[in-house]
Structures are given as C-alpha cells and as structure tokens.
C-alpha cells in the first residue's frame, strides 16, 4: 500500500513520547506508585489535553519526566524526545532540554518569575542558555519575543519587574521565556487557571497562534474541560495515576466512553441549553496508598461488575479514530448510551 508523501519517517517519530512511564514517591521504606504505565505521545504541532482531578497525576507526570519532581520521586519507563530517551541523560544535558526543546509554563506566573530580576534579564537568561545570545543581540531578541507574545511597549517592559505587570502580562512573559528556548513542545500546566476569563481567552489565543506559526506541540494540562475542548485536538483523561481514556477531542467529548469521563462531563454546568440538575460522581478518589485491587474507578462506578473489582483494565482501542478506553464494561456502553440519552431527554430542568 503506498504511503502518502508527507508521511516521511521523521514526521512519524513523535516529538515527545512517554513509554510505560511510572512515577513513584518514596515514603519511609516504601515506594508508592502515583502514576502507572503511562503511554502518551505528541506529534509535531499537535495539541494534547491532559484532564483529570487533583491528585490524578496529571502534573507530576511531566515534572517527573523532566526530573523536576525532587529526589523523593523515582521514575521508570522511557521519555523519548525525538526518539531519544532522556531519562538516562546527565543532569547537565537534561538542563539544556528543560526550557529548551521542552518549554514549560505553570499556573501561577507571578511566583514562577524571579521577583527581584527585571523581565529582560529573565528572558535573557534563557536566550543565553539556549541560543547563546548575549548583550544587544539578546536584548533585541527579548524585545521581539515580548512583542510576539502581545506585550505592548516591549522595550520599556524589559526594564520592569514582575510586580509591575499584571498576572496576564506575567503569563505572557513566561511564554516569552519558554519561546526563547525555541521549544519543539510546550508543557503548559493550568496556564490560565489563575487568570481572569477575558485574559484567559487572550492567552489561549496566543498559545494557539504560536503553535500554528512555529509547529510547536502543546501539552495542555487542565482541570477545565472547556479549555481542553477549546484548544486540543486530542485528549487524555487520567484517573488515580492511570490513563483511562484517550482519543480525538471531538469524538471523546461528544461520545465519552469511560464512565469517569462521562461523569466529569455530566458534573459540568454549561452556558447553553436548559438548566439541569448536575450529576456529581458519587464518592471520592481513593488515596494512592489505598487503591482497590481492580479498576481504581470501580468503587465510584455505577456500571462496575465483578471483573472490575478483580483486575485493572488495559487501554483498548474502541474505534478507528484512535479512541481508546480502559474499561471492562465498554461492551455495555452502547446499550447504556442509548438509555442515557433517553434519560437526558426526559430530565426535568433544575
């Protein structure tokens, strides 16, 4: 079968891939796994959304992959950047990748920036480390980057301190610092959660524009399914340290397969349509040291059967759209989906 011309070998290697990636924390004499057997990859220019509730491992995964999670955290499995495993790299080599090929942006920009350094200096550091620029060349490039991220009067801003800028502007500065490393992929962990709605819209637009212009991949970690839906081509849903569902955003959000994903969506109020009573997911997430033997979601799952309490379901493809789900009850899905649709139609507005 002939391959399409643009499917070159280079294009088929993901920019970043986690393979069989496990993260564990040492507590006393024990090691407690908090992220298990993760397989995720991001292609060039792709936007991948990682969604899940607090403690599901969505943030620690990426910190641990870059060895930024502290010395109590150990990992196993592989982290492949353009096919090369970076878990075995020396600290010195990895330091060039962090903020370089792999850029990072976190939730609270004001505490990520150094309060006593001018903006220009902080961008300059990254330019020096990753592009070898200094002096007037660095300043000119820093100014260009500030301009790129939509900060007006860039030249004057270079000499200001983070406290002189608003939260939205500081997040733009963080993005400029990430761009200084000319990243192939940007890991953005709740980049707009601390920002106001109108400013969030600006930052999301900016991230989208940059991705389109540079082909940079984006890993967007968020608890907000709305943000994920707005930004991402592909979505990965995590629960209790495991991937429970992954697929194209449109398919996954329109027809979620995992009971947890469906629960998340049912728990969300919306801005349109009739107001319905929300459907919360019953119970709470089990602590990582008290996970049930089978599927971690089983204690909260209305569909759970005996098999679910015995073994952990593997991620299995459910359609030809690369939509996969880790659920034993997927066979029961079609029947319940119809029933649920009927139930939704008959629901009384709240």
């Amino acid at each position: 079968m002939p391959y399409p011309l643009d499917r070159s070998v280079a294009a088929s290697v993901p920019v970043l891939a986690l393979e069989n990636f496990t993260v564990s924390v040492r507590t006393g004499a024990h090691a407690l796994a908090i992220v298990q057997d993760l397989d995720i990859s991001i292609a060039r220019g792709e936007t991948l959304g990682i969604v899940g509730e607090s403690g599901c491992g969505k943030s620690i995964t990426w910190l641990a992959a870059l060895r930024l999670a502290g010395d109590k955290v150990a990992t196993s499995g592989r982290v492949l950047l353009h096919g090369q495993d970076i878990t075995q790299l020396s600290e010195r080599s990895l330091a060039r990748i962090r903020g370089g090929k792999i850029g990072m942006v976190f939730q609270d920009p004001t505490s990520s920036l150094d309060p006593v350094q001018r903006i220009g200096r902080q961008i300059g550091e990254s330019l020096k480390l990753h592009q070898g620029l200094s002096g007037s060349a660095a300043r000119a490039e820093a100014e260009r980057l500030l301009d790129r991220v939509g900060i007006a009067d860039a030249q004057a801003r270079l000499d200001q301190y983070p406290h002189e800028l608003s939260g939205g502007m500081n997040q733009r500065v963080m993005i400029a610092i990430a761009l200084a490393g000319q990243p192939d992929i940007l890991v953005a962990d709740e980049p707009t959660t601390a920002l106001d709605a109108t400013v969030q819209a600006q930052i999301l637009d900016l991230l989208r524009d940059i991705g389109r212009d540079t082909g940079m991949g984006l890993v967007l970690i968020s608890h907000d399914l709305g943000v994920i839906a707005d930004m991402c081509e592909r979505v990965a849903v995590m629960y209790a340290g495991r991937l429970v569902e992954t697929g194209p955003a449109t398919a996954l959000l329109a027809m979620p397969r995992h009971p947890y994903t469906r629960g998340l969506i049912a728990a969300l109020p919306d801005l349109e349509g009739p107001r319905m009573r929300l459907t919360p997911i019953q119970g709470t997430v089990s602590a990582p040291d008290a996970l049930p033997p089978g599927c971690a979601f089983a204690p909260r799952c209305l569909m759970a059967g005996a098999a679910c309490r015995r073994a952990i379901p593997a991620l299995t493809q459910v359609s030809d759209l690369a939509h996969s789900v880790a659920c034993f009850r997927n066979d029961a899905f079609t029947a319940t989906a119809v029933a649920e649709q009927a139930r939704q139609l008959s629901r009384i507005p709240a």
Binding site: S166, G168, M169, D196, A197, T198, V199, Q200, A201, Q202, L204, D205, D224, L225, G226, V227, I228, A229, D230, M231, A249, T250, L253, I265, L268, D270, L271, E272, G273
Partner: peptide
C-alpha cells in the same frame, strides 16, 4: 457579552470568542 463568550465550553468548540484587549 465578551465575558460570556470568553468562557470555553465543551458544547461550542469552534465558536468565535470576543477577545478583549488589555487587562481589567
């Protein structure tokens, strides 16, 4: 109008947002 349009929602993906300039 801008505030409501700025809220990302899973049920209106490709919708055009009104993006306000500047900060509050």
């Amino acid at each position: 109008e801008a505030l409501i349009s700025a809220i990302p929602s899973i049920r209106r993906r490709s919708r055009d947002r009104i993006v306000l300039k500047g900060d509050p």
